[in-house]
Design a protein around this nucleic acid. Structure first.
Lengths: 353, 353
DNA sequence: CGCTAAACTGACAGCGCTGTCATTTACTTT
DNA sequence: AAAGTAAATGACAGCGCTGTCAGTTTAGCG
């Protein structure tokens, strides 16, 4: 079978080409080959072409190990997260890889509990893995000491962070801002426009900025509509189906029942829906429900959940690109990166067509 | 603030320790330090202790780049998959990292469409990343040419593969066998025991061994119960919620309706449940439903889905451990690795308590 | 056409480990 | 106690690149 034999040949022999082989074939010094491989300026176009031809011919691939050894930085980006949400995690990875692959970077993942010794983590990123940079998500992106430590260790980073875009003068180029506040306001406003006045809010863990932002956006929309803050209808719990369900069961046995429940994410909202069903309540007639994140839960429940869409793949792409821009010390003017989520109205608030 | 200053000190200076520093402090040669760091035998216990103390004192961390450069192999494992299922992917990663971290290995992920040029992929794994080994999942684990190519390139691998455990004599130490056949038989048997005779089967893509195994297990259970194969109730489609829903809608409008539907995974099963609801059918009274994988879908629907549990974190741990055993050329006797899924009976077949 | 600055290229050291092999030390055995 | 063997350790080269800096070519200009 030709394929198999070809492989033996290609991989066993030809691909072993080293930089010296390329240099010899192209008739230049290894340094020039190196320059071409690193896309450095100041290589004449004709020379570059000659080198590239040799590279192609020999199927030369620079050894990542040798490169990072000699250059003191690897072509590897680490991604730190502590997120139990599988969809978020895979979207994040997909987005990062979309960009990193094009640039021949590798991705190593660090799903770490933040309580772990993070000084250890930083030291390992710096001395062991020698990553070129890291992408931070909550809660790493929200921890000033951690960021300071990264800076002290001279590790480049980009953080994905839930916050409204900052004012012009305080440009922060290491952040991708996700405006949860605005998203939350949109969905709360939507509920208000549907006539709801008793709108419960089930908060996830307040450790996360996004929780705080979503809560603040909710309050802001109520305030705009001159609805007093329904203190007794605001509950704090965890971002899980079970918590959503349990909390909703509790809320719905109150004498002063809410007519709508806004949950901190779709998983909780699915729990709320399940609770409503258990109690014989129809959604949205008896209880309107909305969530956040536009996760598959929200599409696969019945009725489908109104939610706030956040394109995490795109957000991750922005983060990766920015990190590469930072790592490569490019001098170009970089814009502030901001992502605006947007409401998706579905049957759990609108009812069926 | 002490923390910040400590960090500057620790990370900026102390952690820069190199192998020479450790050797000097411990009063041994760098080679001996190297031996200790690599857990090689033939280092006297007292010497080892002295070195370890110096390592600790200087907070020395060997440079992964230098190590992989000098040794021709990295402390990095790659994981290849092409799986749209976020839960599977994160479980896989979790399990792999559980083991890899303990052994100071990094994980790089390669969610690749198999149609991509896989020769290119192998060449890159070999020459660029120089991974110590790879963990393969379907469909990579099922592709003989791909495996042959890995072997030709001398890349160590372990594959997670859906198949019954092989006979004694044909031990395959590079595999973790997941016995989908048996799991499928269990759940089908369960449905039969509940009195079902018209049991539909919604297959996912037959490209995957697991699909074939699940199908074969289903047929086997029917055969054991002397139930003829209900050809018209066996449909092939994709592993998605929408496909499950669409297929179920079609099946349930037949004149010869099934009394139970076994779906190829939980996501499809959730789709089936949604279809039943749309048609006003009660589950399990009018239609029993079961799935595979014990994914969150199965717990978060109402009624909860009977399914087949497969501990993917554990399976991934097995795979990672085996890969490390292989990579380290350990001479110890290695057992065949096999995982047996088990049925989880829930309300979608049993009804409520 | 000659001169200068800028663009381009190459020589060479060395990154921090590991592999190989020689040497030393410790432990048996007689 | 000497010889023999095995265990423990060290000396040294070199992995395949990149950084530095010096040298060479080209282009622009009077």
């Amino acid at each position: 079978m030709a394929t198999y034999i070809d492989l033996l040949k290609n991989i066993g022999d030809v691909l072993r080409a080293t930089i010296d082989d390329v240099a010899a074939l192209a008739g230049v010094s290894i340094k020039t080959v190196s320059r071409v491989m690193n896309n450095e300026a100041s290589v004449r176009a004709t020379t570059k072409e000659r080198v590239l031809k040799a590279v192609d011919e020999l199927k030369y691939r620079p050894s990542a190990a040798a490169r990072s050894f000699a250059s003191k930085h690897s072509f590897t980006i680490a991604c730190l997260y502590q997120n139990p949400n599988a969809y978020y995690v895979t979207d994040l990875q997909t987005g990062l890889l979309n960009v990193l692959r094009k640039n021949n970077y590798e991705l190593v993942i660090h799903p770490t509990s933040f309580e772990d010794n993070w000084q250890e983590l930083i030291s390992s990123l710096k001395n062991q893995a020698r990553v070129a940079g890291v992408v931070l998500t909550s809660p790493f992106s929200e921890h000033p000491e951690f960021l300071a430590a990264l800076e002290a260790a001279k590790i480049h980073y980009v953080k994905i962070i839930s916050a409204p875009p900052p004012s012009e003068e305080s440009a922060d180029l290491t952040s991708v801002f996700v405006d949860d506040f605005d998203g939350s306001r949109q969905v709360t406003k939507h509920l208000i426009e549907l006539g709801h006045r008793q709108i419960a809010f089930i908060k996830g863990s307040m450790d996360h900025y996004s929780t705080q932002q979503r809560y603040a956006g909710y309050l802001s929309a109520l305030r705009d509509a001159a609805i007093p803050e329904p203190t007794s209808l605001i509950v704090s719990t965890e971002y899980t189906f079970d918590s959503g369900q349990k909390t909703a069961l509790e809320l719905l046995t109150r004498s002063h029942k809410p007519s709508a429940i806004l949950a901190g994410n779709d998983e909780m909202a699915a729990g709320v829906l399940s609770a409503a069903r258990k109690m014989g309540l129809n959604c949205p007639e008896d209880l309107a429900i909305a969530g956040f994140e536009n996760s598959p839960f929200s599409k696969q429940s019945w009725p489908r959940l109104t939610t706030v869409h956040q394109n995490n793949i795109y957000i991750a792409e922005l983060a990766a690109q920015r990190l590469l821009d930072i790592v490569s010390q490019s001098k170009k003017e970089l814009p502030t990166l901001c992502y605006n989520p947007r409401i998706i109205k579905r049957e759990s608030t609108l009812g069926e067509d």
